Amino acid sequence: MSPDASAPVTPLPEASAEEPHQPQAVPVKRRPRGRTTLIIAAAAVLGIAAGTAVGYGVQAGRAPTPLTALSQSDLAYPAKALPADQVPDPLPASQDRQVRTDGDLRKLIIPRPAGWSDNRDMGVLPDGWMGVDDYALDFKSEDYMYGKLLAADIRRVAAASWKKGTYRTANVWLVQFRAGVDTAAADHAESQRAYMPVADRGAGNEGSALKGSGRGRYYLYKAERKAGYMPVYRARAVFHRGDVMVDINMFDTAPISKKDIRTLAERQLERL
C-alpha cells in the first residue's frame, strides 16, 4: 500500500550549527555491589586451601631428615687428667666466696658488739637460724614476700639479734640463696632498696652509699610517733655479697646516728 499523499507531513527539525544533535543516553544496568569482592575473596580462600594441601602433600612425600648424632668424636675437655704438676691451685678461701658461704653460715655473722646482749624476741631460733616464714613476717606483705623468696630458691637464713640498754635493738640477717641462682641475692637486695625512698613504705630518703659494697646503702628513718607512745627510731643497711643478702636493722626510742648503723654494716661487710 502506498502512503497517503494527503496525510500531513511533519517536517524534521533542522539541526542547528551551534547545537549539534545529541543522542539520548541508554541506561546501563549496574552489577550489584559486593559481588566482585565476594568472588575475589572466595578465590583467595580456595587458593590458600589448595596451596596448603599441596604443601602438606609435598612434605609428606619427602624422606625424614636425620637428627645430628648426640655423641661427638672429639671431647671438649682432656680425655686424661692433667699431670699433678700442671693442675692449677685452688682459689684461697679469701678469694672463693663459695668456700666461705657453703659452711656454717652462722659463723659469718659478726661477733656480738661489746656492751650488747642476746635478744630472743625477734624470731631468731636458739641455734641462730631463722625460718623463712619468720623472716617474711618483718615485711608488710608477708604472704607475697614468702612466696617470692621460695620462687627465688632461698636456701637458709642465719640471724642474730642483740639489745643494748632498755630500748636499743639490732638485728643482723644473712639471707642465702642457692648457688645456681647467681643473681637472686642481688635481686632481693635491690628490691628492698627500690622502695626505701618512699615515705610510707621505706625510710623516705635515698640513704647513703656503703663504701666497698657495690650498690649497698644504709638509711635513717624518720621517727614514728603515736599519741601515748614513745617515738620509735629506725636505721637499716642493705647489701649483698655473692649468694648472700645482708639485712641489718636497728631500733631505739632515741635517735640513731649514721655512724651507728654504718659501723655495724661495715663490720659485717668485712666479715663476708
Rank of each mutant, 00 (worst) to 15 (best):
K148W: 00
P83S: 15
R100M: 14
P88F: 01
V124P: 00
S71H: 13
L67M: 10
P92H: 08
P64L: 12
Q59K: 15
A151M: 06
E142L: 09
D104E: 11
P66K: 06
A76N: 10
R120F: 07
L150R: 11
A60D: 09
V58G: 03
A79E: 11
R62M: 10
P78I: 03
S71F: 14
A63K: 11
G57N: 12
P92I: 06
R100N: 05
D102R: 13
A114C: 01
D127P: 05
A114S: 13
I110W: 00
S71C: 10
L82M: 13
V99H: 02
R97Q: 04
Q98H: 08
M130F: 03
A79F: 04
A63G: 06
Y77P: 00
Q72M: 14
G61F: 08
K107W: 02
D104A: 15
A63D: 13
R120S: 12
P83N: 15
G55I: 10
R156A: 14
P78S: 11
V124Y: 00
M145T: 11
P66T: 08
V157Y: 00
P126V: 04
R97T: 01
R112E: 05
A81H: 09
D89H: 01
K148P: 00
V132R: 05
I110A: 12
D121P: 03
G131P: 04
A93H: 03
A114H: 02
D143K: 12
F139S: 08
L75E: 07
T65V: 14
Q98V: 06
Q59N: 13
D85V: 12
V87Y: 03
G103K: 13
V132I: 15
A76R: 06
A158C: 04
L149R: 00
D134Y: 04
P90C: 04
T68V: 10
G61T: 10
G51T: 14
G115E: 05
A69E: 08
A84Q: 10
D134F: 03
D133W: 05
D104Y: 09
Q98T: 10
R106M: 10
G123N: 13
Q59S: 15
L75V: 13
G123C: 06
